[in-house]
């Protein structure tokens, strides 16, 4: 079983990102279980979402305490909350950031990948300049970095979740897939 934790802020599409990824993994024949941090979500407040993936039915129904990988939609969270808490050694941290992976020196126990998802989202008119919706771009990066799902399957999974500008979201995911830097 692989467990993934998402860190973002209300309004970035964090929970939707986890659900699109779950749908894609399910299309590819995996069992999935995906849930937000149980509570009340507010725009701008930190949001956490969780995803379990397995090749057999998933019976575990408690929170995820020791994730295999982490996806960070808002890099500011790195300075404000302990995003690596419980992360297994050698796990990926995929960060929405214009910086290079080697700029994140505190994460030497882990593998870091970065992608400037905010700029990509703005380029394709996803959200606003102040509050871009970066979730589909970060999924493109996830597909490339982990190889757990094909980019095309993520594009297919998006259709049920993205009511407007599907084309822009697909382009954002493709660009992030190409541009992501792996440390």
């Amino acid at each position: 079983m692989i467990e993934i934790r998402f860190h973002g802020r209300g309004g970035q599409g964090t929970v939707i990102a986890s659900e699109i990824l779950a749908e894609a993994l399910a299309i590819e024949g995996n069992y999935v279980q995906v849930f937000p941090q149980f509570g009340v979500e507010r725009r701008g407040a930190p949001v956490t979402a969780f995803l379990r993936i397995d090749n057999k039915p998933i019976y575990l129904r408690c929170s995820i305490y020791t994730p295999d990988h982490i996806v960070v939609l808002d890099p500011v969270l790195i300075e404000t909350i302990g995003i690596t808490e419980g992360l297994k050694k050698g796990g990926w941290i995929i960060i929405n950031s214009f910086k290079n992976p080697e700029d994140f020196k505190n994460f030497s126990d882990f593998k870091v990948a970065t992608v400037d998802a905010s700029s990509i989202a703005i380029k394709y008119n996803l959200g606003s300049r102040i509050a871009p919706i970066v979730n589909t771009a970060i999924l493109g990066a996830f597909a490339k970095v982990t190889g757990m799902t094909k980019l095309e399957t993520i594009e297919r999974a998006m259709k049920d979740y993205i009511p407007i500008n599907l084309e822009g979201n697909i382009k954002a995911a493709r660009e992030a897939y190409k541009e992501v830097k792996m440390g």
Partner: peptide, 11 residues
């Protein structure tokens, strides 16, 4: 169960 099923997605 609240959240454990209500807000958790699975196949």
């Amino acid at each position: 169960d609240a959240f454990v099923l209500s807000h958790t997605s699975e196949i």
